[in-house]
Nucleic acid binder design. Structure first.
Length: 280
DNA sequence: AAACAAACCTGTGCGC
DNA sequence: TGCGCACAGGTTTGTT
């Protein structure tokens, strides 16, 4: 579920509630959440550690610890990070609990019904070995910045459809299915356009759309869909879903041209919505 | 190199 | 009301 804007919103919430605090105790329920190493590895790696800072690359949250290690959190499809007063009843599917030192006494919960998400303590000096996907991540448009020239170079020699290309985390990190469709609509480009077919003006439009959609969505605290799966660490939803112009709007009138009907196709194995009139 | 399917899980919404 | 199926914000792996 969560894409760059949602993960960034969670990161900011964690900065407010977790940075500078020591982890007193760690509980791991479902071992699948820590499958990359083990239940004991997470407990040993976090107990007594203090969180120094929290960064993000793509959809990966990385917490630096005073031990020299780092904690990586990936929410995948249904993961949530919640901060709550100690002793509060926990939701179903709460797989990991971090007890935070200090007053008031609080807990960080990792909740994840589908259990695709994960948490792992790793040595940032050996990221390439311990977390190869993180090391191989492409450029993050927000964290790293993405210039028109960079984007142009990315698109130039790829005979690849825009939709799967933008979703490829090895190329650009952080864009998922919702924002990909919204970005392409704003850029007025069809999802099946070949990357190397874009004219300079179209590259500039795509660049502008990537930045404006992502920054606006971050400002809105991300998108919370009707299932209210995604919420921030306080349990509050975002509001960017109100700005969606194509995502999940198949069969409805395009909000931009007011004439064509939004079409749904499958591209790169993912449900894709676009306006056949606005997007060329 | 790029497209495609399947796999990993659980919950929900829909048609019958 | 119940049942079965399609589908869901992500990513990896293996096959054409």
């Amino acid at each position: 579920m969560p894409e760059l804007p949602e993960v960034e919103t969670v990161r900011r919430g964690m900065v407010a509630f977790v940075v500078g605090r020591r982890i007193d105790r760690v509980e791991v329920g479902r071992e699948r959440t820590v499958r990359r190493t083990s239940r004991q590895a997470l407990i040993d790696g976090l107990t007594g550690a203090t969180v120094l800072s929290i960064g993000r690359r793509g959809k990966y949250i990385v917490c630096s610890l005073d031990t020299g290690d780092a904690l990586m959190i990936h929410l995948r499809m249904s993961g949530r990070v919640l901060v709550s007063k100690a002793g509060t009843p926990r939701p179903d599917h709460t797989h990991v609990v971090l007890h935070l030192a200090g007053e008031p006494s609080e807990e960080l919960w990792f909740v994840d019904p589908r259990t695709f998400g994960e948490m792992v303590v790793f040595d940032p000096e050996h990221t390439a070995v311990e977390l190869p996907e993180l090391a191989k991540l492409g450029v993050d448009p927000i964290t790293d910045g993405l210039s028109v020239a960079q984007l142009s170079a990315i698109l130039r020699d790829r005979a690849r459809q825009l939709k799967p290309l933008l979703l490829d985390q090895h190329v650009i990190a952080g864009i998922g299915n919702i924002y990909c469709d919204e970005i392409l609509h704003r850029a007025r480009l069809r999802p099946d356009r070949l990357a190397n077919s874009l004219k300079p003006a179209e590259v500039r439009r795509l660049h502008d759309a990537i930045h404006s959609i992502l920054t606006t969505a971050i400002d809105a605290g991300g998108s919370t869909l009707s299932d209210t799966q995604y919420v921030d660490v306080m349990g509050d939803g975002g509001s960017f879903q109100l700005d969606h112009r194509v995502y999940d709007r198949a069969g409805q009138r395009c909000l931009t041209c007011g004439k064509a009907t939004i079409v749904r196709v499958v591209s790169g194995g993912r449900s894709t919505c676009f306006c056949p009139r606005c997007q060329r």
